[in-house]
Design a protein around this nucleic acid. Structure first.
Lengths: 251, 251
DNA sequence: TGCCAAGTTGCACTACTTGCAACGCCTAGT
DNA sequence: ACTAGGCGTTGCAAGTAGTGCAACTTGGCA
């Protein structure tokens, strides 16, 4: 569609890996280095990239600026913050906020674990649809035809021996999640971590986002994890109220 | 330099304000809406923007992803994290990490105050050079000619009645900061807030970044603020060591 | 049902982008 | 100190890709 823009975005994505030289960028984008140089100049003028040293470019401050402003605008994130922070303080474990956006589940906020064992995740990262608790919660919020559609579009990459690997099992799991009101990731994504997640709703009762608590198995066994569910649901409830949700008279 | 890219970046920046329609974006960029439409399509393909609803576009997940990855790559940030978190825990006040990058001072990390009174700032935001403690620390790290050059390029917008409004006073202040080892913002930026800041150094002794503690005056008077300096310096010291700094044999 | 506003598409024209080749700077090695 | 190699940078000519116009489609509202 727009070639130069397309290439510039490719360059930016390549820079996400770390500082790069002109030649490296030219090669990874598959274009002449002159082209990359000029794109970089424009990007630099807008402060999307900056020179790390004489021959290395890296991502610039505008990116941080845009991202944090955009994040601030996501109402859920701002409204849910106190409840999630409290949940993080109370449990000491990693708390994630994720939302479903045009076909994918994205982490939009994260509160780090107080324990030395941390998990790898990042705001902006995409969560796998078939093996994360947040994704299950978000997909379970759709009606059956939509769920089926999504379930059939997934490639069920096995991550651990507990990973769900077919659409039928996934749909069954979604039904359980919808009924139970929360989802479990029983080490389906990573061997040493399990999670629980619950939905955050707006005034119409629609699911805006999902909160999750992720715990290394060495810290808490399955009953221990499940013992966190009341706290999780309470936090999700508080966050939902902050988003305008009112349980009275809603199903 | 690169027109279409230039326009696309302008569009992205406009989107930072919040979700926009095609026409709004076309107007703010000063181009035909057809053009904007095609740029948006490319941006959408790379997930730099996404459709919020039928007629609104907003920033997309790739931006969050890039920004947080770029932030992770800033070594200072990662290395300094424990020390800054501890400082934030110990004092309960807002802690900022800022760095000097191609002519401007940018906040690259922030730890929120535990008190209800919060200050407005954001990761990625630029800090004014003449009236913030972090900027003073970072500029004071340069040699005299460079300082002078910077001092003369600043527009000394008065923010409060304490704001430094000319280059001579600014240069004098920088000398004080360099000698004393920390900087004070005596409500020079906002009436109700004052701050102290200190440098974080690498193995060569070069200043990589600045830490600051910002406190509302209603919580702590000036002696109270200055009483935080030892904690601040200790945190900066710890962070510096994490960055490879070793005070032995260095000035 | 019909109007209005907003998004979308086809097309022709031109300006912008592109890659090449040559240049200059900086670094490292002898 | 000199030289060679690598990398970033610039001028130029060719042509493609981006642009704006105008007409069409879609969706919401009275």
């Amino acid at each position: 569609m727009s070639q130069s823009l397309d290439r510039a975005l490719t360059v930016l994505t390549a820079l996400a890996e770390g500082p790069r030289t002109l030649d490296q960028l030219a090669e990874s984008a598959g274009v002449h280095k002159t082209t990359v140089l000029r794109l970089l100049r424009t990007l630099e003028a807008h402060r999307f990239v900056q020179r790390a040293d004489a021959r290395h470019y890296r991502l610039g401050a505008t990116l941080f600026d845009l991202a944090s402003r955009a994040l601030d605008q996501r109402d859920v994130r701002r409204q849910a913050e106190p409840a999630l922070r409290a949940l993080n303080d109370a449990t000491g474990h990693t708390v994630h906020l994720a939302s479903y956006e045009s076909g994918e589940v994205v982490y939009i906020d994260k509160y780090e674990s107080k324990h030395p064992v941390r998990m790898y995740s990042r705001i902006g990262k995409r969560a796998a649809l078939h093996c994360t608790a947040v994704a299950k919660v978000l997909v379970a919020a759709f009606d059956e035809p939509r769920r089926r559609e999504i379930a059939e579009s997934i490639t069920y990459t096995p991550m651990t021996e507990n990973t769900i690997t077919n659409a039928a099992d996934y749909l069954a799991e979604l039904r359980t999640v919808a009924e139970r009101g929360y989802a479990i990731d029983d080490s389906e994504h990573e061997d040493f971590i399990h999670c629980v997640a619950a939905p955050i709703r707006d005034q119409a009762g629609a699911v805006l986002a999902a909160v999750s608590v992720s715990v290394p198995k060495i810290l808490l066994d399955r009953p221990g994890l499940l013992a966190l569910v009341p706290d999780l649901l309470a936090a999700a409830d508080t966050a939902s109220r902050a988003c305008g949700w009112n349980p009275v008279g809603k199903d």
